[in-house]
Design a binder for these strands. Structure first.
Lengths: 125, 125, 125, 125
DNA sequence: GTGGTCTAGACCACC
DNA sequence: GTGGTCTAGACCACC
């Protein structure tokens, strides 16, 4: 089940993008299964302390991106198939990795240093 | 030379920490060489549009961390030796790497996937 | 040039959909050429007597549908290539035709009657 | 039998015109046979949630157009003969067809395209 | 209750 | 000025 109480919003990125991003991560982490229902727009808005319109924008984005389905007035349902899943995984993964590589090069890390350090901490985290 | 005009301050972290962090990155990237002088407190404060006290706090932090020396009234000078350098490198590096590993595991990436992807984009960035 | 002064809004369909629909028709009719700039959100809102947010929603829809491009803060530009054009043409065309056929069958028109009547009035309109 | 519960009124056209139009369509579709009695003015007004005067206006229009007969206090009866039928068919048909042709030309459809598309979807609808 | 649309008005960064 | 985001609050149809 998607636990929105663990989502803390920053002011660096649009809120509706952060919500969609959070749901994507939850899907990849296996916390959101296909068929699962998200809270209603109003409910989530209350929970996050934001405006229902902003939640609506987030839900619309998720529908456009393909992993949320809204039918009539009966709530919104997580949808995933292999294609959607791999597209989400790809997007998040690519983002993470390039952010890391950019920052690593920024401080003159070498490829070997990067790999060694990741290897070093991987199992401890 | 450290170019502070490229530093944009966020409101997520204490400003003086951001300044120190920026200087550290500049040192590692080779843009700040030992012996180089940073702008005066007032000058930098004006440039960044912040209070001179905040800059003072940043300079103090950098002195405490060992890569800035202030002698009398003659301004503040970048100082690095191998020990300082490796300690900075370690700190920044560790942060980057653990942030990456945490996020990667968050979305169920495997070690192999992480390494392969980094390898894939390393030379393109 | 897209002449929005000829667009009259009804209350049967979402306003932002009507705006996008109007622009699509203008493109197909040859009144909106690629590279042409639409008015700013605020300007069009004033012209149509609606809220800028609604115009924003319309422009977003048009971007999503592929025939509008917004780069930075420099206004929004009509974009068309063969693919976009044929996709718009297809959509509008299919809609028109099926609406007509549904209505025609509703009143028990036969295929022959439909064709004969269309042929009869085609050149007079 | 004319099922008025399927009639939803818009605010784009006079309500009494919409009622008459609906009855005409029902006649052409074969749902309203000659001799069939329409509900009383008051009854239909209640059903549609409108003023009985408006229904009266609609019934008057249908009488004037020739397909409704009211004799004394014994209600209103659908009347059709070949002449009436073909006149209704003509009117509705012409409207549909010219609306379609106008819209089709609006988006630069050619006659051939129109015919081909109608032919294509005719049997599927 | 639900999703969805719209307004009025504020604020942001970018130029 | 520009595009874009967000809130507060209203209203709609559908159930």
């Amino acid at each position: 089940m998607v636990d929105f109480s663990k989502l803390t919003l920053s002011n660096k990125e649009p809120v509706y993008v952060q919500i969609a991003y959070y749901v994507k991560k939850q899907i990849l982490a296996g916390f959101a299964e296909p068929g699962e229902e998200l809270p209603s727009r109003r409910e989530l808005a209350a929970l996050l302390g934001i405006n229902p319109n902003t939640v609506q924008k987030a839900y619309k984005l998720m529908e456009d991106e393909g992993y949320l389905r809204t039918i009539g007035n009966s709530g919104s349902i997580i949808y995933t198939d292999d294609e959607v899943l791999s597209s989400i995984r790809n997007e998040l993964t690519k983002g993470l990795v390039s952010d890391f590589v950019i920052a690593a090069k920024d401080i003159n890390m070498t490829f070997k240093q990067a790999i060694d350090l990741i290897s070093e901490v991987w199992d401890d985290i």
